[in-house]
Design a protein around this nucleic acid. Sequence first.
DNA 1: TTGTAAGCGTTATCAC
DNA 2: GTGATAACGCTTACAA
Lengths: 343, 343
Amino acid sequence: MAASEAAVPTLRDVGALAKVSTMTASRALRGDPKVSAQTTARVRAAAAELGYRRNELARGLRLGRTSGMVGLVVTNLANPFYSQLALGVEAVAAGRGMKVVVSNTADRVEQEREIVDDLAARRVDGIIVVPAGAEQGHLAPAHLNDIPVVLAARPPVGITADCALLDDFGGAREATTRLVADGHQRIGFLGPPAAWTSAERLRGFRTVLEDAGIALDNALISCEQRDIATAEQAASDMLDHADPPTAFFCANSRNTMGVCRAVKRRGLHTAVFGFDDFEMADMLDMQLRIVTYDPEALGRQAAEQLFHRLDEKRSAPLKGAAMTKAILPTSIVDYTPALPTAD
Amino acid sequence: MAASEAAVPTLRDVGALAKVSTMTASRALRGDPKVSAQTTARVRAAAAELGYRRNELARGLRLGRTSGMVGLVVTNLANPFYSQLALGVEAVAAGRGMKVVVSNTADRVEQEREIVDDLAARRVDGIIVVPAGAEQGHLAPAHLNDIPVVLAARPPVGITADCALLDDFGGAREATTRLVADGHQRIGFLGPPAAWTSAERLRGFRTVLEDAGIALDNALISCEQRDIATAEQAASDMLDHADPPTAFFCANSRNTMGVCRAVKRRGLHTAVFGFDDFEMADMLDMQLRIVTYDPEALGRQAAEQLFHRLDEKRSAPLKGAAMTKAILPTSIVDYTPALPTAD
DNA sequence: TTGTAAGCGTTATCAC
DNA sequence: GTGATAACGCTTACAA
């Protein structure tokens, strides 16, 4: 009854059992109308009995060179931002019957190069990458057998590629503008190191202050914090300053949380403006506003660009259209309680 | 200079350019010592010039039937629990030079069946699944061409399979025991519907109350809340009860957050015990304790079990060892402030 | 309606 | 050392 064979059944096995040629078995299983209903039924029965399943790898090899998979390369899947982005990519890919191969770079360019190389060797149809650094030569399609590449969250540097970005600059500008409008003259800035997004957010911050004629104080700018604890410390240091900030702008959620900790622990009511929403932010009872956006939408957008490129490649293999650059908007949410509960 | 060819170069192209046979090219690129150093160098140069990259799909087809990929099927990648689990799986897989194909089921069994089927057709080496339901026939290796399957977070039902679980029962029992030890007699329970984990946590909760001789009040048990908002409402309803709970036990983080909202909004100091840690929980200034664990470790554990099974399959294809069942421990973290800041 | 031959890109095997 | 041949599992093209 139960065939406990070690070998995976092939079309040949199915054909043999159904007493037809391999070719007829192939046609029957694909529902080719040129095969008689009777034969088709017999083949189907044989396939079911054997537990036959088409080998998509062999099929792809014969048909062309597409694996029906897209590669997704992120820096850290544990970060909700990237996992939500992955969700968006996966959703769009699934809608097109494609699978997503996810890999982590831990922000290491060397790792990224190896992963991308491996994905190309596996003949993925396309790759979506959150680039780890400014060295991106290995991401140029010319180096990847012309596999389309879409960059997400960070822009191409030194290469041309489609990309989907957030409006980091605009969001930061808007946030800072509001803080200035509220009368703040001394605003602390905290962000993580090295990321392009963080630099853009700092640029937005600076632009507004300069336009408002407010002098930049380097003691109030700190871009070294990767985690909540160090962010809290950095914020604490600023608050110890002789002329402490009356407000903070934080370039990512880790820094926002650290700042909230520092402010709250001192019982202060310093205004905080963060970037990246996080759960329970509204429960903190603070003067807290956040620049927010939809990472899943970013993933969907990047996937759409990739599939558009794939469609185009299929119809006109040689002439590549101009690169696309999508910028997703940010919005602002205010978590300041209507009436302060404490105090 | 830059070859702008549409066709991806093959081993044959490399051989032609290097004036050797395809076979010699193949050997040279693999570093076969039987090929002269001179030839090897020439082949390598030709490969580099062409931008040749080995087709791993074709290679796999010839070599055996392994794709060097493992499938990971989760219910919702946006949930930090699953994305961290995915990170653990990815880390272990990467350590063995394997790729992870991630798919979402959105808790739909039908979707799960299709995904698993597709993964099998793609000849993944193994599959790790967070099963969406109790109908798991499609996960039995016998139906999947003997592809090893490891279940994560939820146990096998009606099939035999390796699995990696959390100590849901033990964690809930410990939490409830502490609440009872603190003198609580009326404890509200809130959890999400239908998940096995939630049922286990409820079982742990019930066991302790029964052992303590405390009557169960159905008005204090609610297992319908999937999100924070409905959890807050459910908690609020319990607090409106004539004989309201003096403490809450929540079976997942959404419910914990909802309960915290309800309690905080009313300015109460009701004790809350949650399951699943979440960021900023320590900033809420509440009597809050949480049963926590390491989802990434769960992913690593499941991956280890899978690879162990794969190794075993390779050495002894026919005799399967007994199924393994790993249970990861939970621990408790207390976020209650040493001295209440408000009040 | 069904079967035969050939080949997708790679490698094991056996010749030279 | 290197090359010719066949085959992995599948499907297109052409025959029967």
